[in-house]
């Protein structure tokens, strides 16, 4: 993603300037950068979901209605690995839980009426929260939320459909190494979460426990394991918070993850 940022930010700057000539919308550029940056990820999702045996209808429903990338990749990956549907949904929901933390941070950007706010909720994800909370006033925060939300939705859906169609053309026999593609994707998704000591503790503990319990259990275990691994991670986090000027626990500030 980052490799293309030169071209993307140049393009976004151009479009942003066109936009700003009709009024001051300082957030347009950020929104466009974030939306274009998810394009290759969306294509990747379409290709691997198709290869994992998801039909076009399911891929469209996933990107349009689930609309939270990490959960989509996790669900498709668990199915590809031979896991049960329940394990796939459980993993996806545990990952989606962090979207519930963005609502309170996004309050000023969301509409005041309850029905409108519930409609807006679909767009409350990592990227829109990052762009919106970076704005200095309420008007820009609202504009950034809606503009990035709708643009991201369009790009994400168009690209995942394109990926699904591309995947159907390519065809992906197991011998190509598809079974290694999913854990590799999850390594990419894990990367932004291990920047803190607590995140690293959670990851290492979960990895160790998962390897330890494999011989005795079946699929769906990673879900239980990851909950157990939170104990040492929360302990590390609490200790770090006691001493000032440590890793600045991101918690409320989402990274550039999906």
């Amino acid at each position: 993603m980052r490799a293309r940022f030169g071209t993307i930010s140049w393009l976004a700057g151009l479009i942003g300037r066109l936009g700003s000539s009709r009024g001051s919308r300082p957030y347009l550029r950020d929104c466009i950068i974030v939306s274009l940056a998810v394009a290759p990820t969306g294509v990747t999702f379409g290709v691997v979901a198709d290869a994992a045996g998801f039909d076009l209808a399911r891929i469209i429903v996933m990107s349009a209605l689930v609309f939270t990338g990490a959960s989509q990749f996790a669900a498709v990956g668990v199915i590809n690995d031979g896991g049960s549907g329940g394990a796939a949904v459980g993993s996806a929901l545990l990952l989606a839980a962090r979207n519930a933390l963005y609502g309170p941070v996004m309050r000023r950007a969301l509409p005041p009426s309850t029905p409108a706010r519930l409609g807006a909720a679909q767009f409350v994800i990592d990227e829109t929260t990052a762009v919106s909370t970076a704005q200095t006033n309420r008007r820009d925060a609202t504009g950034a939320f809606w503009f990035s939300g709708v643009l991201l939705w369009l790009v994400w859906n168009a690209c995942s459909i394109a990926g699904a169609l591309l995947g159907a053309v390519l065809g992906t026999p197991e011998t190509w190494g598809l079974d290694a593609a999913f854990p590799a994707i999850l390594v990419a998704l894990l990367a932004p979460h291990v920047r803190t000591a607590a995140g690293r503790t959670a990851a290492l503990a979960a990895a160790a426990v998962a390897l330890g319990v494999v011989p005795v259990t079946g699929t769906g275990v990673p879900i239980l394991v990851s909950v157990v691994a939170l104990a040492p991670a929360l302990w590390v986090r609490a200790r770090r918070e006691d001493s000032p000027a440590t890793d600045g626990t991101p918690g409320e500030a989402p990274g550039r993850a999906l």
Partner: peptide, 23 residues
């Protein structure tokens, strides 16, 4: 946010790591 925030924030790190090992 207040009660479960820290745990929910750390969930992806744990879940991704466990899934990577199994897969």
């Amino acid at each position: 946010d207040r009660r479960l925030g820290p745990a929910v924030t750390l969930l992806p790190a744990a879940l991704f790591a466990a899934l990577i090992m199994i897969m």
